[in-house]
């Protein structure tokens, strides 16, 4: 309860609170489409690949947003180029491209900044969110939510049956790269809160939890956003009260929610499935 009091008192805590909720929501929303399109690894790749962009922006003295978006998009195109123009399969080309970008990023950032900065970027420090970061996150969040609401229909059909979407004239490759672009924006917005390495947990885990609980995409997206936001607030709480790094706490919070759904989901949970199987046996 003291936390609530502090939340009303300290402005930096309010900024961290608003930012983490927004990050949780948009990670859940974009993450839902990422996992349904079988692009979970792609999420991991892009989040790692923004690192050199952050370093270069720092060297040039510009906002890290521009560099991060640039290298994120470059990665998406690089992976696409290797997959389409060689016999290398997509999971291999993802690993190939993002490890190179990540390595380059680490070298650049150790040259450009101190080691503490690197830790913050890698693991997140939600309490250090500045006003400009908060506005950036809110702007990205609004854009992501707006795009998903306006083009929900197109996102649904291209994720579910890409061939049919292409057959009736949707530009499916454009949609693919648009999602990659949004994914990059979401990653950049999450840098402060969860850090580069664990963004993937925010993208994949809340969406997977939601996936176990519903048979409707719209419900899945809403649930994923809710689980993402909840995990982010839990992360903020532990970070503030127990002085823990926010990224790992958020990642573990998403995992805890997932385990609950995995065990107790009415349709998919293994506990209920075991009980049903046991009852059937008893009847027979």
């Amino acid at each position: 309860m003291e936390f609530l009091h502090d939340l009303q008192t300290y402005e930096f805590l309010q900024k961290a609170f608003i930012t983490s909720i927004m990050v949780g929501i948009i990670c859940g929303v974009i993450g839902s489409f990422i996992i349904l399109r079988g692009m979970a690894l792609m999420g991991d790749a892009i989040s790692h690949a923004v690192l050199p962009g952050v370093a270069i922006s720092y060297m040039l003295g510009i906002n890290y947003f521009y560099g991060a978006v640039f290298t994120g998009i470059l990665t998406a195109f690089g992976i696409g180029a290797i997959t389409q123009n060689s016999r290398i399969k997509s999971d291999s080309s993802i690993g190939l491209v993002f490890s190179a970008f990540f390595a380059l990023g680490i070298i650049l950032i150790t040259r450009a900044r101190s080691a503490t900065d690197l830790t913050q970027i890698l693991f997140g420090n939600v309490l250090a969110v500045r006003t400009s970061d908060m506005w950036l996150t809110l702007a990205i969040g609004s854009l992501v939510i707006l795009v998903v609401i306006l083009f929900y229909k197109e996102l649904l059909v291209s994720s579910f049956d890409e061939t049919m979407a292409a057959a009736y004239g949707l530009k499916v490759r454009f949609i693919h790269y648009s999602i990659m672009f949004l994914l990059t924006l979401v990653t950049v917005a999450s840098l402060q809160t969860v850090g580069v390495i664990l963004v993937v947990s925010m993208l994949i885990t809340p969406a997977s939890t939601a996936y176990l609980l519903t048979n409707r995409l719209s419900v899945m997206v809403l649930l994923a956003a809710f689980f993402g936001a909840l995990s982010a607030v839990i992360g903020l709480y532990f970070s503030f009260v127990y002085n823990m790094p926010s990224g790992p706490v958020i990642a573990l919070a998403t995992t805890a929610l997932f385990l609950l759904a995995f065990l107790f989901s009415p349709k998919q949970g293994i506990v209920f499935r075991k009980i049903q199987a046991f009852n059937r046996k008893k009847l027979a």
Binding site: L36, L156, S159, F160, D161, T163, M164, Y211, T214, N215, R216, L217, V219, M220
Partner: peptide
């Protein structure tokens, strides 16, 4: 489409 090209666990 061919049935094998559809993800039948899609939430729909």
């Amino acid at each position: 489409p061919q049935r094998s090209n559809i993800d039948w666990s899609f939430p729909i």
